[in-house]
C-alpha cells in the first residue's frame, strides 16, 4: 500500500494520573475504511479526539500527514489538514433547514452579510446528488428528518470542507435497520471517492459490512490490526475483550511479546 494519508505512531495521552493512550500506532489510507474498535474506556474516543485536535497528544509520538510530520494542536489544525469529525450528537440546528445546516458558520454571501441562498442550495443539491442522497426538498427543517437522514446531513456538511479523512463516531448507534443501511451506503461512497474513513462502532455487523481493516484498542494500547476479510468475528471479539482463550494471545503470553495479535498486511 502507498503512504497512508494519516499515520500516528507512538501516541500517548495522559489525563492526570490516568494514561488513556500509551504508545498507540494508527494509520488510514486514501479509499480505506478503518474501524476503530475497543471496549468502553479502551481509548477510542481519546484517540479520535487526539486526531481531531480536541485533546493534543503528549509529546513523544509522531503524526504524519502524507508522510510529512505535522502537529495537531487544535481543532482548526485538524480541519486545515483535511480531517473532518462527526461526533455522535451530530451538532445540527433542528430549527434550520437542510441548506442552513450544511452551510452553518460557512455561509455563501453576496453583498457583505447577506446570504446567497441560491448558490448555497445549488451546491447543497450538487453535493447530495454526488452522494446519491435523495432528499427532494432541501428547505424542510432538520427536525423533520429521520435519524438516518440527519446523520447523512451531518456527514455531508463535513464534506463541504473537502476533507481527505472523515472520522465517524458511532454513526449507526441510534438508527433502525433501513437507516443504518443508508449510512453504510454513504460510507462506501466516501471510500469510493477516495476518502479515508475512520469508523468508531460497537456494532460488529456494521464493521464487517463496510470496514477494510479493524484496529483494536484495549486499555489504551494497540491490541491488534486485522484485515476484516481474513479475520473471524471471534478473533476480533477476543482482541477487544482481551480473552485469553485463543492461540495468539496464549502464545504472546508465553513469549512475552508486547504487540498482541498483530496481523499486519
Amino acid at each position: 500500500m502507498s503512504t497512508p494519508v494519516l499515520e500516528l505512531s507512538g501516541i500517548s495521552k495522559t489525563f492526570g494520573a490516568v494514561r488513556a493512550l500509551s504508545e498507540v500506532d494508527f494509520h488510514v489510507g486514501a479509499g480505506e475504511v478503518v474501524a476503530l474498535l475497543g471496549d468502553n474506556g479502551a481509548g477510542k474516543s481519546t484517540l479520535v479526539k487526539v486526531i481531531a485536535g480536541a485533546h493534543p497528544a503528549d509529546s513523544g509520538g509522531t503524526i504524519a500527514w502524507d508522510g510529512q510530520p505535522v502537529t495537531i494542536g487544535s481543532p482548526s489544525d485538524a480541519q486545515r489538514l483535511g480531517i473532518a469529525t462527526i461526533y455522535q450528537d451530530l451538532a445540527l440546528c433542528d430549527n434550520l433547514d437542510i441548506v442552513g445546516n450544511l452551510f452553518l458558520g460557512n455561509e455563501r454571501l453576496h453583498f457583505p452579510g447577506t446570504l446567497d441562498e441560491v448558490a448555497m442550495e445549488s451546491r447543497a443539491r450538487e453535493l447530495l446528488d454526488s452522494l446519491s442522497v435523495r432528499i427532494p426538498d432541501l428547505r424542510v427543517p432538520v427536525s423533520g428528518l429521520s435519524g438516518g437522514q440527519r446523520q447523512i446531513i451531518a456527514i455531508a456538511r463535513s464534506l463541504l470542507g473537502q476533507p481527505r479523512v472523515v472520522m465517524l463516531d458511532e454513526p449507526t448507534a441510534a438508527l433502525g435497520v433501513a437507516q443504518t443501511a443508508q449510512v453504510l451506503d454513504l460510507i462506501e461512497r466516501l471510500r469510493d471517492q477516495g476518502l479515508g474513513v475512520v469508523l468508531i462502532s460497537h456494532n460488529m455487523a456494521d464493521v464487517r459490512a463496510v470496514a477494510d481493516r479493524a484496529v483494536v484498542l484495549r486499555l489504551g494500547r494497540n491490541a491488534g490490526d486485522f484485515p476484516i476479510a481474513e479475520t473471524s468475528y471471534e478473533e476480533i471479539v477476543a482482541a477487544i475483550t482481551g480473552a485469553a482463550d485463543n492461540p495468539v494471545t496464549r502464545r504472546s503470553e508465553r513469549t512475552g511479546a508486547s504487540a498482541v495479535a498483530t496481523k499486519d498486511h
Partner: peptide, 24 residues
C-alpha cells in the same frame, strides 16, 4: 431571514452547542 447575522441568531437559539462548533 436574509443576513448571516440573522442565521446565526436562529442557530444559537436552535442549538447553541452546534452553533459554537460551527465557528459562530
Amino acid at each position: 431571514r436574509k443576513t448571516r447575522y440573522g442565521r446565526m441568531v436562529y442557530a444559537v437559539g436552535g442549538n447553541a452547542e452546534a452553533a459554537r462548533r460551527a465557528g459562530i
